[in-house]
């Protein structure tokens, strides 16, 4: 095993996971222009749904995953309809929206903890974590391959959706100028509802895949969210391609940063990167 190759592989894996969270976060930020802290909890909802159906109830894998993705999406859409949409109607500032999303995050996280306890849980090891594959002179596990393939497909899918479909044009129009979007006949509230569904469903899928990789906890959302937010800011907030860029950059910097030092420095390095970007390139790598 060659350490350099392995660091590259680890960087890509971490980058893919951060991208998974940043994609939905950026999609929602683009349309609504506020930092949706609650985004993290939808990852936990996805993970726990699969935990409930697949591990506790013995349902089949694919329907359980579908249920997890769907439930995360629906929860996200409901969060918009019940909390954020009313605030938008009252012209609540982005700070008010952020505080509301933090409240929502805390509340939903508490509900998960009440239902499933605060304990760390693993999902059934169907991907056989022990089995590794050789890539050049490094190794990778099966679940990591699944994560990377998922992120690549999701990014391509979102790219096509935003650039090739009428729905995508509506989303871009809203992100550019929501008032003008409305007068050309776009029902912005409805489109934003769908954006919340898609973004949160992606977060749910992220939570599920991470669950199969390491495991789940009710509090898993905050850590994921913070890394997703850093990836978004580093890549360019509100920019879908910035998510990939920022996710990968964060993954690489974290992994290469702890090359010669203890792995516990990872978070410090991640936030160091965030501060450097906020100071010197607040628009991120790709900008708007």
């Amino acid at each position: 095993m060659d350490i350099l190759t392995q660091l590259v592989i680890n960087g890509i894996i971490a980058g893919a996971i951060y991208t998974l969270i940043a994609l939905g976060f950026n999609l929602i930020y683009g349309a609504t222009k506020f930092f949706n802290i609650a985004h993290g909890v939808f990852a936990a909802i996805g993970g726990y749904t699969v935990f409930f159906f697949f591990k506790l109830s013995g349902a089949a894998l694919v329907p359980s995953i579908l249920a997890g993705v769907l439930l995360a999406g629906i929860a996200g859409m409901l969060s918009d309809k019940l909390v954020f949409l009313p605030l938008r109607r009252k012209r609540g500032s982005s700070v008010i929206m952020l505080v509301a999303s933090l409240g929502l995050f805390t509340a939903l996280q508490a509900v998960i903890a009440i239902m499933f306890s605060n304990r760390f849980q693993t999902l059934t090891d169907i991907f056989n974590i022990q089995k590794t594959y050789q890539i050049f002179s490094g190794v990778i596990t099966r679940i990591h391959i699944v994560i990377i393939i998922t992120v690549v497909s999701l990014t391509i899918g979102l790219f096509l959706m935003l650039n090739r479909t009428k729905f995508g044009k509506a989303v871009k129009a809203i992100s550019d100028d929501d008032e003008v979007a409305r007068i050309i006949g776009i029902d912005t509230d409805r489109v934003i509802g769908y954006v919340f569904f898609i973004g949160s469903a992606i977060a749910g899928l992220g939570g599920i895949l991470i669950g199969f990789d390491t495991g789940i906890m009710p509090t898993m959302g905050m850590g994921l969210l913070l890394k997703g937010v850093i990836a978004s800011i580093v890549g360019g907030v509100g920019n879908i391609y910035g998510s990939v860029c920022g996710g990968l950059l964060l993954g690489f910097v974290e992994n290469f940063g702890v090359w010669k030092i203890s792995g516990e420095w990872k978070d410090a390095i991640a936030f160091g990167l965030l501060i450097i970007f906020l100071l010197f390139r607040p628009q991120g790598v790709l900008g708007k």
């Binding site: 479909t165 009428k166 729905f167 044009k169 129009a173 550019d176 050309i184 006949g185 769908y194």
Partner: peptide
């Protein structure tokens, strides 16, 4: 719509607002 191309600035209004179809329809 500054982010969009000149063409898309026109195309964006030429849309039947059937959202479910619009997700996939070109």
């Amino acid at each position: 719509f500054e982010q969009m191309s000149v063409m898309d600035n026109i195309l964006v209004v030429l849309t039947e607002r059937n959202l479910w179809c619009a997700l996939f329809e070109c």
